[in-house]
């Protein structure tokens, strides 16, 4: 495949910190661009060079294998130099490390910083201190924009559209940045969003983000086109949000019985890593006909290529001034 022409494309943001605030056009632009990489990535000889000479630093303050690897591969596919930095987070002086690390890395003149941090807003704070493009790879429970984009691309390829679909996001909404980014994206693109979770995992005031809340799986899944399961983030849970895993799975784990309420062709999604037998039954997760979970991972690389490319090429090469 030849290099894709970029001349007429304008990306109006200098960072990708979240989905909130992105227009339908910008989201479509990113998805279209990502779409064009999908087929290309499936070929054997698939190196591109649009990011050659550019440096991408993956700065992860929180453990991640999947997202980091996905960004790394995306950067390399485009011919960029990718450096991975995992910053051990001492519990006491995290913030100092954040700003100090940002300043240090900034002095190395990277083109893109891909940042994950366990505090909401930390990536934005960092973006204010550096003069390169910043991509949010997940901040606390705030946003995870590339996950929402890859989910959207998966949906669009499978269903041919996003507008008008009925999407249920189920599980640990309270601690989920994936849920928040998806709510913004799906609403912007014209889908209808339902949230299904026990009341203890529904954060207050979330109806104001344009969603319908259900506390019963069977009721909430009725006629849904897409069922997005979330990982139960036990590491972020302080105190009892529900009595036991057994009880949680009984009422909120996705199995075939509950799934029967959704449309027959409903697509099952999960951002990974899955807790099998906790939020999703293994046989449902592995159902090739209905589960798009593996495809989501593939779309992840394409979407991140699009984000890296558009952010890098729409900005002038920074001279670190």
């Amino acid at each position: 495949m030849s290099e894709i022409a970029l001349d007429h494309i304008h990306f109006p943001h200098s960072h990708l910190l979240g989905i909130e605030g992105l227009s339908q056009d910008v989201i479509s632009l990113l998805l279209d661009r990502a779409e064009s990489f999908v087929e290309h990535n499936r070929q054997t000889d698939n190196k591109l060079s649009s990011l050659s000479g550019r440096t991408i630093i993956n700065l992860f303050f929180e453990d991640s294998t999947r997202t980091r690897t996905s960004f790394e591969l995306a950067g390399k596919q485009l011919g960029g130099n990718v450096i991975n930095m995992s910053v051990a987070t001492s519990s006491v002086k995290k913030g100092e490390t954040l700003i100090d690390t940002a300043m240090t890395l900034n002095a190395m003149h990277p083109d893109v910083l891909v940042v994950r941090h366990n505090d909401s807003g930390a990536v934005q704070l960092l973006s204010e201190k550096v003069n390169c493009a910043v991509i949010n790879a997940g901040d606390g429970r705030h946003e995870h924009p590339t996950q929402a984009l890859l989910d959207a691309l998966t949906i669009r390829r499978r269903k041919g559209r996003i507008a008008g679909l009925l999407v249920a996001i189920c599980g640990d909404i309270a601690h989920s940045r994936v849920a928040r980014s998806n709510i913004h994206l799906l609403n912007t693109m014209g889908a209808e969003v339902r949230l299904i979770a026990p009341k203890t995992l529904i954060p207050s005031g979330i109806e104001g983000m344009g969603v319908q809340v259900f506390n019963d799986m069977n009721e909430g899944l009725k006629d849904c086109d897409i069922v997005m399961m979330l990982r139960l983030q036990t590491e972020r849970m302080r105190g009892g949000f529900f009595p036991s895993i057994r009880e949680y799975f009984h009422f909120f784990g996705l199995d075939y019985d509950k799934l029967a309420n959704a449309r027959e062709d409903a697509l099952i999604m999960h951002p990974g890593p899955m807790n099998r037998g906790v939020e999703i039954a293994s046989e449902v997760a592995d159902d090739i006909g209905r589960s798009a979970i593996r495809e989501q991972v593939e779309m992840g690389v394409a979407v991140r290529m699009a984000c890296l490319e558009l952010l890098t090429l729409s900005a002038p090469k920074g001279d670190g001034s």
Binding site: S120, D139, G140, R141, H142, R180, G205, G208
Partner: peptide, 8 residues
């Protein structure tokens, strides 16, 4: 809602 939106 504001706290929820900001993930705080």
């Amino acid at each position: 809602e504001t706290a929820t939106r900001l993930g705080l």
